[in-house]
C-alpha cells in the first residue's frame, strides 16, 4: 500500500444516496485476476451508454469537475463486499471519499487500499455540495495527521474520526497483514489454548 499524503484538491460531487458497489464496478468486470485496470470501468453503466459512448450528463464525463476527492450521498458503498470497488476508485485517481455515512465492508476495503473514507455530518455534507456547486475548481485540503478536512472559501476546518491503528497504517503505507504476521506466536498460543484441531 502507498503512503497517504496530504491532499489539496478540487472535488467531484455525486449526491446520489445508497450508491452500491454494483454501480461502482458492475459484476461483469470482476473477471480480472489482478488488481489493476478497474478504473476504466468505474461507474461503468452510469458513465457509458451500451455502445461505449460517454453519457454526457454523468459527472465524471463533465470536464468542469475533477480532483482526488469524491463527495457522495449517504450510505456510499453498500451491497457487495467486492474490494474491486475500492481498487476502481483508487485506480481512477481518487484518494478520498467523503460522505455522511459509509457501508461497513466498503469502508474497511477502502482503508486497506490507501483510500481514505471521511465521514461528515449531513449538514457539512450539504455545505460541501454547495461549495462545489458555487465553484467547481475550489480546493479542499485533507490533513490526515491532524484529522481535518478544510473547506474552500469559508476555510472552515472539519475534524473527522479514524481508528488510530488505521491512521498509522495509512500514513506509513502498512497493511494489516504485516501486523498479523508479527502476532504468529500469539495466534498459535490461542489455538493451543482453545484446542483448535488443525
Amino acid at each position: 500500500m502507498e503512503k497517504f499524503k496530504a491532499i489539496k484538491s478540487s472535488a467531484v460531487p455525486l449526491p446520489a444516496e445508497d450508491v452500491d458497489t454494483d454501480q461502482i464496478i458492475p459484476a461483469r468486470f470482476l473477471k480480472a485476476t489482478t488488481r489493476e485496470g478497474f478504473g476504466d470501468n468505474l461507474f461503468r453503466d452510469w458513465r457509458y451508454n451500451s455502445d461505449g459512448t460517454p453519457k454526457k450528463d454523468f459527472i465524471l464525463n463533465n470536464p468542469v469537475y475533477a480532483g482526488d476527492i469524491l463527495v457522495a450521498g449517504k450510505n456510499f458503498g453498500c451491497g457487495s463486499s467486492r474490494e474491486h470497488a475500492a481498487w476502481a476508485l483508487y485506480d481512477f485517481g481518487f484518494r478520498v471519499v467523503v460522505s455522511s455515512f459509509f457501508a461497513d465492508i466498503f469502508k474497511g476495503n477502502a482503508l486497506n487500499n490507501g483510500l481514505l473514507p471521511i465521514t461528515v455530518s449531513p449538514e457539512i455534507l450539504d455545505e460541501i455540495f454547495l461549495a462545489i456547486e458555487s465553484n467547481p475548481g475550489a480546493e479542499f485540503s485533507v490533513d490526515l495527521e491532524n484529522q481535518t478536512l478544510e473547506l474552500p472559501v469559508s476555510g472552515k476546518k472539519v475534524s473527522f474520526d479514524i481508528d488510530p491503528y488505521k491512521k498509522t497504517c495509512l500514513l506509513n503505507g502498512y497493511d494489516d497483514l504485516d501486523y498479523l504476521l508479527s502476532l504468529k506466536d500469539k495466534i498459535e498460543q490461542f489455538e493451543r489454548e482453545r484446542g483448535v484441531v488443525i
Binding site: S81, R82, N112, D176, L177, L181, I187
Partner: peptide, 13 residues
C-alpha cells in the same frame, strides 16, 4: 463478508 485483502490475511494467519 470480507474484502480480498482480508481473504489474504485469513489465508496467511
Amino acid at each position: 463478508g470480507i474484502g480480498t485483502s482480508q481473504v489474504e490475511q485469513v489465508f496467511a494467519t
